[in-house]
Computed example of a mutant assay.
Amino acid sequence: MIRCVGGVTHDTYGRLLMVRRANAPGQGLWSIPGGRVEPGEPDADAVARELREETGLIVSPGRLVGTVIRPAPSGSYEIFDYECQVAGGALRAGDDAAEVAWVDLATFTTLERTNLLTAGLAPTLRDWSMLPRA
């Protein structure tokens, strides 16, 4: 298992922070920002680092929202997704992101309908009650 983290972040309007992946896995698809945990790195530090690298935002990670397992080229990714609050920074697409955006529910639904979300994202966020609220 490859330990990964993700940041489920809503803005004050209820929109969900999403990135369009620039690299595999999921290249060209939209997802929540996140990535691999470095050896010995606490999850909270990994979430904050990954979101800063991918979105330019400084976040405060909060509670664990849920965990998913996704296939990896050699094994599986075990992804721990945390609810985050924005503490600063400026929104911009970073190293692994082709685009970054605050996504409302109508846009999210369109991305889902047109198969532009990473596999399993929509039902997982629905199950966790973490869809965009705007």
Rank of each mutant, 00 (worst) to 15 (best):
R113V: 02
A134F: 12
A22R: 15
G14T: 05
L57F: 08
T55K: 13
E78W: 10
N115C: 07
L51C: 15
G14Q: 06
L57G: 07
T67P: 04
R133C: 10
N115A: 15
G66S: 09
A72G: 03
L131C: 00
A97H: 05
L57P: 02
L91P: 02
V19G: 10
G120D: 00
G56L: 02
N23E: 15
L125H: 06
L125Y: 08
G35F: 00
V5R: 11
Y82N: 08
E78L: 14
D43S: 10
I2N: 15
F108D: 01
G89K: 07
N115E: 07
E78Y: 09
R126F: 09
P42R: 13
R92H: 15
D43F: 11
A44H: 15
G28Y: 03
T67E: 10
A97V: 01
L91H: 08
Y82D: 04
G34F: 01
A24W: 13
T109Y: 08
R49I: 01
W128I: 01
A87H: 12
V19C: 11
R15T: 05
E38K: 15
V68Q: 09
D45T: 15
G89T: 09
H10G: 08
C4F: 11
G40I: 15
T67L: 11
G14D: 07
P71E: 02
L57R: 08
D96V: 09
T55D: 00
A106K: 14
V37Y: 06
P71T: 00
V47N: 05
M18E: 11
V8K: 11
S31W: 10
G26Y: 05
G35S: 06
D104I: 03
R52A: 15
V47H: 08
Y82H: 13
V59Y: 03
V47M: 06
T124S: 07
P39C: 12
N23S: 13
M130P: 06
L111S: 06
L64M: 03
W128P: 00
G75H: 02
L17P: 11
A93K: 10
A98D: 11
P39A: 10
N115F: 13
T114R: 09
C4G: 14
G34W: 10
C84R: 06
A48D: 09
V103T: 15
A106L: 11
R113I: 03
P25W: 03
P71V: 00
A98N: 05
R21H: 00
R15D: 05
G35A: 01
L64S: 02
A97Y: 05
G7R: 09
L16Q: 05
V19P: 09
F108E: 01
E78C: 12
L29A: 02
L125R: 09
A97G: 06
